[in-house]
Amino acid sequence: MDYVLNPKDISWHRLEKPGFPGIGFEFSESVVDADYTSVYSVQLSKIGPGGKSKLHRDPYNHAFYVTAGSGSVRIGKDSWDVEVGSVIKIPSGEIHGFSNTGDTDLEFVVIYDPPYVAGTDPVQTLEN
């Protein structure tokens, strides 16, 4: 198990494949996963300027902590502006989507409950 990950050790994966609900969206591999706990998992994510995640719903709870940039999040029918320090909670099955409204990357820590590995569970996209 790696106890410390430095930024240069993190591999980023652009997720712009058919059916994926994002434009300009990148995720790290899990930085906290089954080698540490089976209760939750953690990834890092970023959306480039002008990028977004399309409205979608996921089959798990997840929470975001914004570490850089600014943007907006829609959850259900409501929208909020987000900035560094914002905490966003998305319950399982809730419709949501993010947009980067700034001119730098919108970066956040994502905590999944139960644990999740990107690309392993179906995500229901609700817009083109």
Results as ranks from 00 to 15, higher is better:
residue 22 G to V: 05
residue 91 P to V: 11
residue 112 Y to Q: 11
residue 10 I to E: 00
residue 96 H to P: 03
residue 28 S to Q: 02
residue 127 E to D: 10
residue 76 G to K: 08
residue 107 E to F: 00
residue 59 P to N: 13
residue 114 P to L: 09
residue 115 P to L: 01
residue 81 D to A: 09
residue 36 Y to G: 11
residue 92 S to E: 15
residue 70 S to K: 13
residue 74 R to I: 13
residue 5 L to V: 06
residue 106 L to N: 01
residue 121 D to H: 10
residue 78 D to E: 14
residue 38 S to C: 09
residue 19 G to H: 03
residue 120 T to W: 07
residue 56 H to W: 07
residue 4 V to T: 14
residue 51 G to N: 11
residue 104 T to D: 03
residue 70 S to W: 03
residue 14 R to Y: 04
residue 2 D to R: 15
residue 16 E to P: 00
residue 28 S to W: 00
residue 88 I to R: 02
residue 69 G to S: 08
residue 33 D to P: 01
residue 81 D to Q: 11
residue 108 F to D: 01
residue 10 I to M: 04
residue 71 G to E: 04
residue 105 D to Y: 07
residue 12 W to H: 07
residue 14 R to H: 09
residue 112 Y to I: 03
residue 111 I to G: 04
residue 70 S to N: 11
residue 103 D to R: 02
residue 90 I to R: 02
residue 67 T to W: 00
residue 62 H to L: 11
residue 82 V to I: 15
residue 17 K to E: 14
residue 52 K to A: 09
residue 50 G to V: 04
residue 119 G to W: 08
residue 15 L to C: 11
residue 116 Y to E: 07
residue 90 I to K: 05
residue 104 T to Y: 05
residue 73 V to Y: 05
residue 76 G to L: 10
residue 62 H to E: 11
residue 40 Y to F: 15
residue 127 E to P: 14
residue 97 G to F: 02
residue 89 K to P: 03
residue 2 D to A: 15
residue 17 K to F: 13
residue 21 P to F: 08
residue 2 D to N: 15
residue 87 V to S: 14
residue 38 S to W: 11
residue 56 H to M: 08
residue 96 H to T: 05
residue 120 T to F: 03
residue 111 I to Y: 06
residue 73 V to L: 11
residue 65 Y to T: 06
residue 99 S to M: 06
residue 127 E to S: 10
residue 126 L to T: 04
residue 68 A to L: 11
residue 125 T to M: 13
residue 36 Y to A: 14
residue 62 H to M: 07
residue 68 A to P: 01
residue 102 G to A: 02
residue 109 V to T: 02
residue 66 V to T: 07
residue 24 G to L: 01
residue 19 G to L: 08
residue 109 V to I: 13
residue 105 D to K: 02
residue 79 S to R: 09
residue 75 I to Q: 04
residue 120 T to R: 09
residue 21 P to D: 08
residue 16 E to A: 09
residue 77 K to R: 12
residue 49 P to K: 04
residue 97 G to A: 05
residue 114 P to D: 08
residue 102 G to N: 01
residue 112 Y to S: 09
residue 77 K to C: 06
residue 79 S to L: 03
residue 85 G to P: 03
residue 77 K to Y: 05
residue 56 H to I: 10
residue 42 V to T: 10
residue 120 T to E: 12
residue 23 I to F: 11
residue 120 T to Q: 09
residue 9 D to N: 09
residue 123 V to G: 07
residue 122 P to K: 13
residue 35 D to C: 07
residue 61 N to L: 10
residue 28 S to V: 00
residue 105 D to N: 11
residue 34 A to K: 15
residue 5 L to I: 04
residue 63 A to P: 00
residue 45 S to A: 15
residue 120 T to M: 06
residue 88 I to W: 02
residue 102 G to I: 00
residue 34 A to P: 01
residue 86 S to W: 00
residue 106 L to H: 00
residue 49 P to T: 06
residue 51 G to W: 01
residue 122 P to Y: 08
